[in-house]
Design a protein around this nucleic acid. Structure first.
Lengths: 128, 128
DNA sequence: TTTGTTATTGCAACTCAGTTGCAATAAATT
DNA sequence: AATTTATTGCAACTGAGTTGCAATAACAAA
């Protein structure tokens, strides 16, 4: 599975992420790209890029799905892509990967496969 | 806001939770109670019970909303209801509050208001 | 570079969790 | 019991995300 062909749509979508750790919601991407490709295409490309490990997704506070680059240079956790926390600013909505690792203790009687950690608060620009 | 009248529907819904820390999805509740009350009523009661701090909600791995009791005897964090982790079994779907506290470090340049932490894995019954 | 294969896309219709407006009903108060 | 108004049922709606299928465009092979 995953990306097999580097189409114009794939390149255009990846271009939106640039090289930083800011996340984009599917809705934001659909809106930004709606003249270049269909809504279904955005969803399908995101799915393939995630299958390939190029992007990773998470759910924001609003229940929407967000995507961000899984670049090793950014996230530092090539084999544990989902273990870093994400931050969402409750004022401006800016959402990003936090390049830190939060230790999760062993839980008695449970085996843990993945961790989703979302921090909601105010970013530097919005803290008054 | 919150619950003002203790109606039969409110009592029936709370009765589904019993006294444990197992969470229930809105869909499960709608299904269980569909002969006793309307779907809209389930959603509206859940909203009011959460406003009152009697229940708290979180998003499961599937994107569905889950609710669990916020009883102080269970969750231990009366003023930080959202800071305990939730666990969802990827095999049987059982979802519960974990009565532990995961320390979240200060994040430079960010103020944190709430923490959502979902652990996905296998529960004791499903670990082979 | 042309041809053949098939991954990818556009489109429109669909799914489904959750929401809403409003009239009818039923708690709680006097 | 009468009054007030929070709550509920219902049906229609919303909106993110999905799907089937025919048309299109990467890419490989010749």
């Amino acid at each position: 599975m995953g990306i097999i062909r580097k189409t114009k749509s794939v390149k255009a979508l990846l271009n939106e992420f640039g090289h930083n750790k800011t996340a984009l919601s599917t809705l934001e991407l659909v809106e930004r790209l709606h003249r270049q490709m269909n809504k279904s295409t955005v969803y399908r490309i995101l799915e393939r890029l995630e299958d390939d490990g190029i992007l990773h997704s998470f759910t924001g506070q609003d229940g929407l799905t967000w995507y961000a680059l899984s670049d090793n240079n950014i996230c530092k956790h090539p084999h544990h892509l989902n273990t870093h926390p994400h931050f969402q600013c409750r004022d401006c909505g800016k959402t990003e990967c936090l390049p830190i690792s939060i230790p999760i203790p062993e839980i008695a009687e449970h085996s843990i496969d993945s961790v989703s950690l979302l921090l909601v608060g105010r970013c530097a620009d919005c803290v008054s």
